[in-house]
Design a protein around this nucleic acid. Sequence first.
DNA 1: AGTACACAAGTTGTATACAAATACGGTGAT
DNA 2: ATCACCGTATTTGTATACAACTTGTGTACT
Lengths: 228, 228
Amino acid sequence: MSNLVSRLEGIRKEKKSNLAQTAYVQIKEAIIYAKFKPGDYLSENMLADVLEMSRTPVREALKELANENLVEIVPGRGACVKEISLKDIKEIYELRKVLECLAAESAVSNITDTEIEELENAWLSIQSKVQQKEQVEWEIVSRCDNKLHNLLIDKCNNSHLKNFMSVLNQQIFRYQLLTAQTLGDVENTIQQHLEIISLLKERNTEQLLPLLRQHIESAQEIVVKRHS
Amino acid sequence: MSNLVSRLEGIRKEKKSNLAQTAYVQIKEAIIYAKFKPGDYLSENMLADVLEMSRTPVREALKELANENLVEIVPGRGACVKEISLKDIKEIYELRKVLECLAAESAVSNITDTEIEELENAWLSIQSKVQQKEQVEWEIVSRCDNKLHNLLIDKCNNSHLKNFMSVLNQQIFRYQLLTAQTLGDVENTIQQHLEIISLLKERNTEQLLPLLRQHIESAQEIVVKRHS
DNA sequence: AGTACACAAGTTGTATACAAATACGGTGAT
DNA sequence: ATCACCGTATTTGTATACAACTTGTGTACT
């Protein structure tokens, strides 16, 4: 009997509490939300102090962030928060274009109708607000935008692709936050998304992929334009 | 004067000696060359003992290897050398197909004529051996094969793509070693490569990409066939 | 004033110590 | 014989100590 109990406890404990992991999450958020700015040097001691833990887990977190291109470890100085260069943006979006299309291709057959409808409703709600001349915040549109892209990744069959894309999307999100916090042509954005959703509904891969590609390209243009 | 001397010494020291890095390289090689076999558990203590260093750098190395999908860190057990599943192979090759084509597209304009000729000569040498019925070892063909693919990666403009591909290629190389150590249809392989090289020489991207894609697909088929 | 140098403060890299969790093997009861 | 339980050994997670290196500043010397 106590055997069973211990097994249940094993299942219940899904926290995976682990200081290195929390350090990783905290520092990452601080970088993405620009609490730590590009060019800042983060010393392990300082971070350990702030996070109230020892250097060891902080160190592990920094190494992981270096892998994901969010910091650069400079020996003798500390971990430097990476700048965002125009070249980076172009490279990342070039990758996103082919990888997200690959994900979409496989996701099309896995996404359920209700998931699509949910997404559609979110956009329709934004559309009606716009049509009634209500104020629409950038954050809400951004969240909806991410919802679509995350769905495509989430529902694709390729776990390695998922990992790659999550690293990419993280950086893209950071770019958006740093450069494009204002709305562009909202009505156009809404139109693009609704078309994509409609093709998704029909499982029309052939027409979906080019449109998706074009959508990502225009997203890139916005970020690039605001960058300078 | 002594100021200059110390500066020169600083330049000369380009070793970047760092135990964590050497641990990473050593363990990775041991896994790729199957000295550590899939399913083996590697404890930090054991590795530290073998590598004659403390657990700290070993631990960092293992975390990095976990990121690259070569081991899986199991709490309470150790780092388990990853099995190679059929699903993994399919996923990796699917990614390779689109990413290597993307790399090739940009590499075509950066590769020099001499680099291509060097590659071509390597393959012609193998071809002449085969035509004279000489024995050709798998390792030599494999090395030539990798030479082409590494060149495409190396000469592409996208640094993020390079990073992704180096992780992918590492795994592909491991698959090849574990499953396909014997030669398939060598003459066909040679023919395929020579055609690709010829198109590369002409900078004929339009015809190159489909052929490259097809080449990767047939490489995948070989690995999959041997896997079972 | 300008330059070389030395010293101090801060940084990472590495080793080690300790705690908590887990696996493993033996022992006993049913 | 099988299962539950318990103690030991091993494992990771974390903190801390120390060494080597880098940077920056101040000082003496030219």
